[in-house]
Amino acid sequence: MSWRTDFAWLVGGTAPSWTPDLDGQKKNLEVLAAVERLLELVVELGSTASYLSQAEVVLPAEHPWVKQAEAARKALQEKLSQDRTAEHAAEYRQTLNQLKKDYITAYIASHSKARLGVAEDKTRNALRKDDRLLALRVLAGVSLMPTSQLTAFEESLNGLKSCSSLDEPTLTTAAVCPHCQFRPSAEQLELIPAANRLHKLDDDLDQLVANWQQILAGFEAGTAPYDTFSEAYNAAYTELAVRAQRQGR
């Protein structure tokens, strides 16, 4: 007699012609109930487990949270291999939920460091239109000016990314910012926060203007080959001087 026939008899099917082993049937029902609890647990925790699986590849492999997640997963696997009745379901649930909360905290911290906020983005846009930068762009028309310095500055300025739309509720359903698709593991992260780098670029622009003014002063004093200049020199020098005086620089 098969287990299926026994079960059919217990739930009201045709009784077998042999004397049933009630203790055995009870054990079978207990096993069935345990399997059902495990299946329910898998369904319940499946979405969180899938989220955490994605999160592990979003953060860099050396990130502390990734190490924490790997250790927690290993511990859970060991417990689940021995827990046939889902007796510790509450513990599993708490562990996964805490991992998710810790990930959200870690991701937001990385996001805030790598992206400019609303105020910083306004500062960056203002810097793009700054009189100092506009004057340097005019001066770049002079053939002997070190234009590579200006190019490097503008690349650094434009390389800063902004995103101010991310919030914690958004990350409860998505492991990656849906607004800027920030993936720390796929970006070359800077040690200095984006906001600090922006502030430094403002200082760098001051230094760049001062350096170029010195170069122009050398030209005017005759220490540089004067005959290499076009009309752009006079226009650029006047432009820079007027703008610098206007800003008190």
Rank of each mutant, 00 (worst) to 15 (best):
H63D: 05
L29D: 05
D204N: 10
S165R: 15
L39E: 13
R249Y: 07
L41E: 09
A140D: 08
G222E: 07
A194I: 01
T5G: 03
R93Y: 06
A34D: 12
V209K: 10
V209E: 03
W212A: 00
C177L: 05
Y107Q: 01
I104H: 06
L41K: 06
R246Y: 03
V43W: 12
V43H: 14
R137S: 04
T228P: 01
K122R: 13
V57C: 04
T95I: 07
T5E: 12
N211M: 09
L150I: 03
S164M: 02
L139K: 13
L166P: 04
L38K: 15
L52H: 06
Q77C: 07
S165N: 13
W65I: 01
Q94T: 08
A33L: 12
R132H: 13
T105Q: 12
E168F: 09
A232D: 13
K74E: 13
D6E: 14
L29A: 11
H179W: 11
A232R: 15
L76H: 12
L38P: 02
A89H: 14
D130A: 10
K129I: 00
S162W: 05
G248Y: 09
S156G: 01
G248K: 08
G222A: 03
A140L: 03
V142T: 06
Q98N: 12
G159Y: 04
R243G: 01
R84T: 03
N211H: 13
K161L: 04
E87K: 15
A89C: 06
D204P: 06
D202A: 14
L76M: 15
V57P: 02
Y226F: 11
F153V: 00
K79H: 13
Q247I: 02
V142M: 06
Q207E: 12
R124H: 05
T105N: 08
V242C: 00
R137M: 08
A174F: 07
V35R: 15
L96A: 06
D121T: 11
Q214F: 10
P146M: 08
A235N: 11
R197D: 02
T19Y: 06
P60M: 02
Q188S: 14
Q207C: 02
R93K: 15
H199V: 02
I192L: 11
R37H: 11
F7E: 03
R249L: 07
A49T: 07
T238Q: 14
F219Y: 14
E30R: 15
R128E: 09
L76C: 10
P64D: 02
D121K: 14
P184L: 05
N196G: 01
R115G: 00
T5N: 11
D83K: 14
N158I: 00
E220L: 07
A109M: 00
A241C: 04
V142Q: 05
F219P: 00
K26N: 09
V176M: 02
K74W: 07
L52K: 09
P169V: 01
E56D: 08
T238A: 08
A152L: 08
D21S: 12
S17K: 15
E78K: 15
S148G: 05
A69P: 09
T105E: 08
F229Y: 10
D130I: 02
A224P: 03
Y92I: 00
V138Q: 13
E56Q: 15
